[in-house]
């Protein structure tokens, strides 16, 4: 055996130890911003959350100012934002889910075709496109021709952002299914359509559903594209052709209005909870289906 300096071994082990401790410390530091952000939102936001918060529209600056001067809680809620969010995200999902799933089926069925490779590449391109640019497009294509800001323009912007996530998750889930499943279906004499709709997609259900939930939770907090399309609205609007509000849009408005600042935190708390619920359901499904 060649002779090695034994003190160098302990020095190396010390370095090993130090590196490990550094890795753990720096990793755990990541919990600080998480706790700080969630803590701040809860601490400053919970007071405003009451029944009114879910039933009334956002107050005017004047009302809020008077309430503040009287030392009370700002009146009103964010129901216009909640309804707008539900409306726009719901409509976006209605557009993106069928198109995304069918696009994903196409990619999974023809993985080697040049057209598929191009589509996959473009899907990644859309996914990487900043949301503000999707906003510009929805503005140019829908708001300008229609002559007004509208919820539908917001929905389309959000659906463009959801689409690539749904396409890729569908494709990946379908690829993991055994090929025998499809063959078994076809062998029984089922038509291709029925095999896809009644065998493949139901077998891939949990994967598809997770993808849809994650895509939805991704757009729930989107603000920039809605500023350029839905604009915002101080009243409840169920009409897709009218401008609409959304929770993140309200947060932005409250942020810009000193009198309404108290409402920022409750709205943020609500938005965070909504997103967390979507994430947790998605995660729960993944865990349950992997068992």
């Amino acid at each position: 055996m060649r002779v090695f300096n034994s003190s160098s071994v302990s020095w190396r082990q010390l370095k090993d130890r130090a590196f490990f401790i550094a890795v753990c410390t720096l990793s755990l530091v990541m919990a600080i911003p998480l706790v700080a952000i969630i803590g701040e939102v809860i601490q400053k936001g919970y007071k405003q959350i009451n029944l009114q918060f879910f039933t009334e529209v956002a107050p005017s600056t004047l009302d809020a100012m008077l309430a503040r001067e009287a030392g009370g809680v700002i009146p009103g809620g964010i129901v216009n934002g909640i309804i707008g969010t539900l409306l726009m995200v719901g409509a976006a999902a209605l557009i993106a889910i069928p198109v995304g799933i069918m696009g994903g089926v196409y990619l999974a069925e023809k993985p080697k075709a040049i057209f598929s490779i191009i589509v996959k590449f473009l899907t990644d391109l859309i996914q990487g496109t900043p949301s503000i640019i999707v906003g510009i497009i929805a503005y140019t294509v829908i708001v300008v021709p229609l002559g007004s800001y509208s919820a539908i323009a917001g929905s389309i912007a959000l659906s463009i952002m959801m689409l690539p996530l749904i396409v890729r998750s569908t494709e990946e889930t379908l690829k993991m299914l055994p090929t025998t499943l499809k063959e078994a279906g076809l062998a029984l004499g089922a038509s291709y359509t029925n095999v896809v709709l009644k065998v493949l997609l139901p077998s891939a259900f949990s994967g598809l559903f997770t993808g849809i939930l994650l895509a939805t939770s991704r757009v729930l907090g989107e603000t920039a594209p809605l500023m350029m399309t839905a604009l915002g609205s101080s009243t409840i609007s169920w009409n897709l052709e009218n401008p609409a509000s959304a929770v993140p849009l309200l947060i932005w408005e409250f942020y810009n209005d000193p009198n309404l600042i108290d409402l920022i935190w409750s709205s943020s708390l609500f938005l965070l909870l909504l997103i967390l619920i979507f994430n947790f359901i998605a995660k729960y499904i993944v865990e349950r289906s992997s068992k």
């Binding site: 952000i37 965070l272 997103i275």
Partner: peptide, 24 residues
Amino acid sequence: FMSTVVNLLAGIPSVIYGLWGFYT
């Protein structure tokens, strides 16, 4: 646990990060 922390951080909307940056 660590990946949950990271996933939660990834789920926070940009506008809330902005608020936190502004106020904290």
